[in-house]
Simulated assay, not measured.
Amino acid sequence: MDNIQKFMAADMLSKKVSALQKSLKAEAEGELEPGDRKSVAFDLDGEKIVLGAITRTKPREAWKVTDEASLTKWIEENHPDMVQMIPVPKEWFVKSLLAQAAAIDAPVTDAGELVPGIAKVSGVSYASAKPEKDADAKLARLVAGGVIQTSELLAIEGDAA
């Protein structure tokens, strides 16, 4: 194949791989609970070949500003020296309020004031692949040994014309 032919084939294959990966990732996220880790191994002539692991992350919690207008109004009324001329809270002060909320797990200042406009939000949990350091060589062996068939994996039918 020349470079142009390789480019066309690679482009078509990358689109198939991308669609497949998106679908399989969604299925993996349905099969795994947040925090789960599953080793991925294949058998090649009685030898266990470990390619890596699939992990589903635990959602991270963090304090974030969820209602900037409400927070700004509260800061203007209770800490006017912490507001810039345009009613925008000073970034370092908002960060300190978020840090304080994280430290005590509540949107409250050291003085006990309830801070409106910030709340704890949960991030998303997602699956991610973690290949072994030598996974490329192992993958090549599995493909060469017929254990992983790329045409089946990518749903490429022979003689589709």
Rank of each mutant, 00 (worst) to 15 (best):
V40R: 05
V40M: 02
V40Y: 01
A41K: 15
A41T: 15
A41I: 09
A41N: 13
F42V: 02
F42P: 01
F42G: 03
F42E: 01
D43A: 05
D43R: 01
D43W: 05
L44E: 07
D45I: 04
D45W: 06
D45Y: 11
D45A: 11
G46Y: 03
G46A: 02
G46H: 05
E47A: 07
E47C: 00
E47T: 02
E47P: 02
K48Q: 15
K48V: 11
I49F: 00
I49C: 04
I49L: 10
I49N: 01
V50F: 07
L51V: 11
L51E: 08
L51C: 08
G52R: 09
G52V: 13
G52M: 08
A53Y: 04
I54F: 02
I54N: 01
I54W: 04
I54L: 07
I54R: 01
T55M: 04
R56L: 11
R56C: 14
R56M: 15
R56D: 07
T57S: 14
T57A: 06
T57K: 09
T57W: 00
T57P: 02
T57V: 04
K58F: 01
K58L: 13
P59S: 10
P59C: 06
P59G: 08
P59Q: 10
P59T: 09
P59R: 12
R60I: 06
R60L: 06
E61W: 05
E61H: 10
E61C: 06
E61M: 09
A62W: 12
A62T: 15
A62Q: 15
A62N: 15
W63M: 05
W63K: 03
W63R: 07
W63L: 05
V65C: 06
V65R: 07
V65H: 00
T66S: 14
T66M: 11
D67C: 04
D67S: 09
D67F: 07
D67M: 05
D67L: 05
D67E: 10
D67R: 12
D67K: 13
E68R: 15
E68A: 13
E68Q: 15
E68P: 01
E68M: 14
E68C: 04
A69E: 12
A69H: 11
S70L: 03
L71Y: 10
L71I: 09
L71C: 08
L71P: 12
